Simulated scan of single mutants.
Amino acid sequence: MNDKTTHTTPFRCGFIAIVGRPNVGKSTLMNHLIGQKISITSKKAQTTRHKVNGIYTDTDAQLVFVDTPGFQTHHRNALNDRLNQNVVEALNGVDVVLFVIEAMRFTDADREVLRQLPRHTPVWLVVNKIDQEKAKDTVRLQAFIDDVRREYDFADAEVVSAKHGLRIVNLIADIKPALPESVPLYPEDMITDKSSRFLAMEIVREKLFRYLGEELPYAMNVEVEQFTEEDGLYRIFIAVLVEKDSQKGILIGKGGEKLKKISTEARLDMEKLFDTKVFLKIFAKVKSGWADDVRFLRELGL
């Protein structure tokens, strides 16, 4: 008779907030953590405006990641005040916080984010944007990490390259034990709790920032005017909100080429994500002062 008891690893499930100042690579990190692109990425700061739940599930854990806007200390208006409120709200009720900074660069803006973090939730220091040169200088890199760790009582620290997907597996393994024992909250094949409408909107916003980021820094947003499915085809109409008439020309481009390029790339991304054919129509709509219109921002879900 065999009296040996089989011990199985308990399943863990919890929420992890990804926070940091603008443009430290939070959205890129989110996409690599879950293995698929759901959060928009751009070299332009402040591209993420909505909390995005990305879900990673394996045999012993489900990690629900909450992407947040970069905490904004400049350009104060109703939009950025609302984005900062989103950051603080995202921290309520999470089990782990990933505080993302850029390798070899720690600023007052990073310190401002640190001041917003909950004191009774484990916080991981995630040092991102490690290139080959920075990785080679291990002594200098370790000294930098040690200096930052003096600023806050971090649970642990991890070095990653979100852009190249390096050490992402290590980060997941590190934070798993900090999550509570729980059954999964979402089906194992689910990668986000966001709707197809929301994801379509985010894809268009990414293309806008990629091609118009320098010309229309924060003067645009998008809203879905129509999203229908018929005979295996998604018909999607998306309005790009700009502040004034002169910005419509910047969006459209000479001979309509810029808007056509944005529309084509967005449609291809949507067809890949939704695994179906997409008819996409993008057009400009002038709504002056939208970034300072609190009621309108609420209607947009910001």
Rank of each mutant, 00 (worst) to 15 (best):
L208C: 00
T73W: 06
A155P: 02
L125T: 10
K194Y: 15
N77L: 10
E181Q: 06
A103L: 08
L166G: 05
S39Q: 01
A291Y: 13
M104P: 15
E265K: 09
T192K: 03
V126K: 03
M220P: 11
I175W: 00
V96M: 14
D3W: 11
N128S: 15
R149W: 07
G54N: 06
K207F: 01
A266G: 04
G289D: 06
A155G: 04
G256V: 05
G255T: 07
D293T: 05
T192V: 11
I168W: 03
E215S: 10
L199V: 14
V278W: 07
L273T: 04
H7G: 10
D275F: 02
I18G: 06
D108R: 15
V127S: 15
H7S: 09
R298A: 05
V96N: 05
F15D: 03
V87I: 04
I250A: 05
E202Q: 12
D60L: 11
K287R: 15
K43C: 11
G249Y: 00
E225K: 08
T5H: 04
I252P: 04
L125F: 10
G289I: 06
R21C: 03
L91D: 04
P118T: 03
V204Y: 14
R140D: 08
M201H: 11
D67A: 13
H50W: 09
D131Y: 02
P184E: 09
G301W: 00
Y186L: 06
S263G: 15
D189K: 11
